[in-house]
């Protein structure tokens, strides 16, 4: 019941996370920065603005923002914040989440092809390249979390990671490292991508978004926030220490998500963006660490 309420609130609360990150980043950089609620103000502003269509673009361009927001909505309804979660009719499978995140990426890339914008296509090509290494890593991270639970049912995985016993397994540590990398890739934060860039040539996730305005852009900005919520909730629930109880579990997971926003702000302040072509190597390398963790589990290594 409570967990279901939190999952529904996430639909509204997700932009809070990006606001928090921006605020803390400003603090670490010694700026006053925008208020935490700035993402909501942006969404309200965009909601009242006119939609501007690109001349010559077709159905893919029109549908992509709405459909990718719909995919992220489904993700938020799947990702639990506790070991028990209501079924909103969309199940609770980890690999379905992976598929829906890929669907959102695919739609945005297709919209770039529809507008034939050079910046959009350059950026979308980069994002899909990162996603190749990203999927490799994500599959192994899901596997490290699935091993103790015996499957990819997210509430069961959440319970499998609860308590302190799991930390005796090296696999869990490797999985945590991998998941932190997944957070950087999926949220598009430095050193992978810079969400604050205004230079078209350096854009990755932002590139195809250049062509959107008004409510379309609002959908896309909400999708980015929802992506933050989903991966941070998964990191906290599947890889960070938390109790098995529902109420205590939800409180601890939400607290961890706040801590993770601070971690992202620190990383974003202290680490420079990587060379583009090196990113897949880094992500793939972390994937190999996760693979070592999986092998250690299969061979029954425990401290």
């Amino acid at each position: 019941m409570l967990s279901g309420a939190v999952m529904l609130i996430a639909i509204l609360a997700a932009p809070l996370l990006t606001g928090l990150i921006q605020r803390q980043k400003a603090f670490f950089q010694g700026r006053p920065g925008a208020p935490i609620l700035q993402p909501y103000r942006d969404l309200r502003r965009l909601w009242h603005k006119q939609v501007v269509d690109v001349s010559g673009a077709g159905i893919a361009y029109v549908v992509a923002p709405a459909a990718s927001a719909a995919a992220l909505l489904a993700v938020l309804l799947i990702v639990p914040v506790a070991g028990t979660a209501p079924d909103f009719g969309v199940g609770h499978d980890a690999l379905v989440v992976v598929g829906l995140l890929a669907l959102a990426r695919c739609l945005i890339a297709l919209s770039a092809w529809d507008t034939t914008s050079g910046f959009g296509l350059m950026a979308a090509g980069r994002e899909l390249t990162f996603a190749v290494a990203g999927e490799f890593l994500l599959a192994l991270v899901v596997l490290t979390a699935a091993l103790p639970a015996g499957g990819t049912d997210l509430p069961a995985m959440w319970l499998g990671a609860a308590g302190s016993g799991i930390w005796a397994h090296p696999a869990h540590w490797c999985g945590l490292l991998g998941m932190l990398m997944v957070v950087l890739v999926e949220t598009g934060r430095q050193p992978i991508d810079n969400p604050d860039t205004h230079l078209e040539l350096t854009m990755i996730h932002e590139g195809p978004l250049l062509e959107y305005a008004g409510r379309d852009l609002a959908y896309l900005q909400w999708s980015v926030a929802a992506r933050h919520w989903a991966v941070l909730a998964l990191t906290a629930g599947l890889f960070l220490p938390h109790p098995a109880g529902v109420v205590a579990g939800i409180v601890v997971v939400l607290a961890w998500m706040l801590v993770l926003t601070a971690v992202l702000a620190v990383v974003e302040t202290t680490v420079a963006k990587m060379r583009l072509l090196r990113v897949p190597h880094l992500v793939g390398g972390v994937g190999l660490v996760a693979l070592v963790g999986v092998v250690s589990w299969i061979f029954g290594v425990a401290a």
């Binding site: 006119q50 939609v51 501007v52 269509d53 690109v54 001349s55 010559g56 673009a57 029109v62 549908v63 923002p65 709405a66 459909a67 927001a69 719909a70 909505l73 489904a74 507008t115 034939t116 914008s117 910046f119 078209e200 250049l210 062509e211 008004g214 409510r215 379309d216 959908y219």
Partner: peptide, 19 residues
């Protein structure tokens, strides 16, 4: 969700060249 969001996207769409 897709149909609703495309519907409320707003009918007043202006057309502009690609950036």
């Amino acid at each position: 969700a897709t149909v609703v969001l495309v519907r409320v996207r707003g009918p007043r769409s202006a057309v502009a060249p690609v950036w």
